[in-house]
Simulated assay, not measured.
Amino acid sequence: MQNMAFGQVYRADSPILVATPHTGTAIPDDLLQHPAWVPIAGRLADPAGIALQAAAGRHGASVVSALYHPCVIDFNIATDTGPLSPRLNRGGLCRTHTSRGESLYGADGQLPEAEVERRVDRYWRPFHAAVTSELVRLRQMHENVLLLVTHASSWLSPFRNQAGASDCNVGTNQGASCDRQLVSTLTGIVKSCGHSWVVNGKVADVFCAQRYGMPENGIHAIEVEIAGRWRAELEIDARDTVDRKPDAAMDALLEALMKTLRRLPRAEAVSAAAFEDANGHA
């Protein structure tokens, strides 16, 4: 396990890389001087990411995880998006309000652009450099590799209604980011575990799938957002830090995806330089 400024990197040898951009709970000390940030510290946005990280450790999968709370910096947002509203700085890259609508930066809710860029340089770019580097390493070992990203974008936003959400929301950039056999495997496991699912619904075009999916070159990317009953169950498990129970669905999911990856046809190789160049920009 390697500790980095943005979080942690754990390198293993299976063809799966798990990325958890929204599992961070830490708040930088300078922000904790503002009262609005104090209750955010330790507030877990993505309990599914914690469960998937644990499963990755049991199944020899690599992990890139976040240290800081996604309200500080959101690794699943592009850096070149403009502000969508006064409450979303650069499209949510550095949130100015919590998921409960609480202002994090005083009455005007503004964050200087220079501070956004500082966080991008210190945290965002190194996080994605680590993801890219690990995918290159794994692709050199395996004919097909999978980046599996779990996140909580909808849960973090105060503008989306969570009522009626499926237990598992799958994003594949409208099918362009991965082989369809991997999606069938994922949804089959989810269904067999008694959870509901939807593919390319509200998380159809999330950032990591768009950025990293190159199935024609053996690099697949799938994003999952766990909601509904499954999220509620994982939240209960996440609070038990001493005697946390493994999530059977996460274990079954990784096992099945690894088997499917090994059955996929050989893909055209991509050089490390070409992949890094394709993914070196926001």
Rank of each mutant, 00 (worst) to 15 (best):
A5D: 14
A5N: 09
F6Q: 12
F6G: 09
F6S: 11
G7V: 08
G7E: 11
V9F: 06
R11V: 15
R11W: 08
R11D: 15
D13C: 13
D13P: 03
S14R: 14
S14T: 12
P15M: 10
I16W: 10
I16Y: 13
L17V: 12
V18T: 13
A19P: 08
H22N: 14
T23G: 08
G24D: 14
G24S: 15
I27N: 14
D29T: 11
D29G: 13
L31Q: 11
L32E: 12
L32T: 09
Q33M: 14
H34F: 10
H34Q: 12
P35Q: 10
A36F: 15
W37D: 13
P39F: 09
I40S: 11
I40Y: 11
A41L: 12
G42A: 14
L44E: 11
A45M: 13
D46V: 13
P47C: 14
G49C: 09
G49L: 07
I50F: 07
Q53F: 01
A54G: 07
A55V: 04
A55E: 06
G57A: 12
G57T: 09
R58Q: 11
A61Y: 00
A61T: 04
S62W: 01
V64H: 06
S65N: 06
S65H: 02
A66C: 07
L67Y: 03
L67G: 04
L67H: 06
Y68D: 04
H69R: 03
P70L: 04
P70T: 04
D74T: 03
F75D: 08
F75Y: 12
A78M: 07
T81E: 09
P83G: 07
L84C: 03
P86R: 02
L88S: 10
L88V: 02
L88E: 08
N89G: 02
R90F: 11
G91K: 03
C94I: 05
C94L: 06
T96C: 05
S99D: 05
R100D: 10
G101S: 03
E102T: 05
E102D: 06
S103A: 07
S103Y: 03
D108C: 02
G109C: 01
Q110L: 00
P112E: 00
A114R: 00
V116T: 01
R118N: 00
R118K: 00
V120K: 00
D121I: 00
D121T: 01
Y123C: 00
